[in-house]
Computed example of a mutant assay.
Amino acid sequence: MTPAIRRHTISTAYSVCGGLTRKAARNFYLAFLLLPAEMRRSIYAAYAFSRRVDDIADGAAAPPRKQVLLDRCRQDVHRAAKGSARRWDPVSVALADAMVRHRIPAEYLLGLIDGMEMDLRVNRYSRFDDLFQYCYRAASLVGLICIEIFGYRGAEEARRHAIDLGIAMQLTNILRDVSEDASRGRIYLPSEDLARFGVSEEELRGGRSSPEFRRLMAFQVGRARTYFRRGRELLPLVDPAGRLCVQTLGAVYIRLLDLIEAREYDVLSSRVRISSPAKLRLALGAWLGAAPSW
């Protein structure tokens, strides 16, 4: 253990990450509670770091300052891969311990930073292939980090399905947040799809859903469900201790798609949300061994 690690005890560092996760991880926290304690705290460290990177990209700082902060995060990853950490930073301390403990490749975390960095310079995606690359970096790499913590068999097959599940979840986030993102100048829906269905960017900011927009959204939901079907194949490959967490996360996100469909794809007038009791029911269903709903 390095002097930097000793300055902030590992147990304290994990406790801080747990508090950050409990406060910020609205759609994840209940699923994380299904994990064994040691596995859960490593997930907290990974989440706290990814949340930090995401908050930098979405924050109010000027782009040059954001770049400086993201570069600092890269330095933290390089240190963590060697079992070291920035002084007095609990997230870095916990991340270093988790990376070494679970042999998490540094390239996963560095790629995640690259994904958040895309939000500093890219606010439109011409084709789905371009959006796929963003989703891979922003979400699939998180899935790859998670299965290193959970344990898995099947090597490349498991990693492929973890990528699929990450794509599905990020596409769902994008569909839920169309209006909010558009108001911030970001259009994640591919331009080729907007043109195909006759939907303008102005409509995304307007708060009213046209028949054309609903058809566009139906297509996007179908695409997300395709990736969920592929991602579901990860479940039998993940070690049992982590399987309930994966199952619950998938169920929560599928529920978001169900709610989008139920309101006839109107995500422009208000944000789609899952109530806390509904999330609890989904988590309880996984814990009781209910068949996956996705």
Rank of each mutant, 00 (worst) to 15 (best):
A4G: 12
T9H: 14
Y14S: 09
L20R: 13
R22P: 12
L30S: 03
R41H: 15
I43V: 15
R52L: 15
P63D: 06
D71K: 11
C73L: 10
Q75V: 08
V77L: 04
V93S: 05
L95I: 05
V100G: 01
V100T: 07
V100Q: 07
P105W: 07
G111Y: 03
M118G: 06
M118E: 14
L120V: 04
N123K: 12
S126V: 12
L131S: 02
R137K: 15
R137T: 07
A139Y: 00
I147L: 04
R153A: 13
G154E: 08
E157D: 12
R159S: 08
L171C: 05
I174W: 01
D177P: 04
S179C: 13
R184I: 03
E192H: 10
L194F: 09
A195K: 14
F197H: 07
V199T: 04
E203H: 10
G207L: 13
R208A: 15
E212W: 05
V221I: 13
F228M: 13
R232C: 08
L249M: 11
L256P: 04
L256W: 00
I260N: 05
E261T: 14
A262F: 08
A262M: 09
E264N: 14
D266L: 09
L268A: 07
L268I: 10
S275Q: 02
A278D: 13
L284M: 13
L284K: 06
A286E: 00
W287K: 01
P292Q: 07
W294K: 08
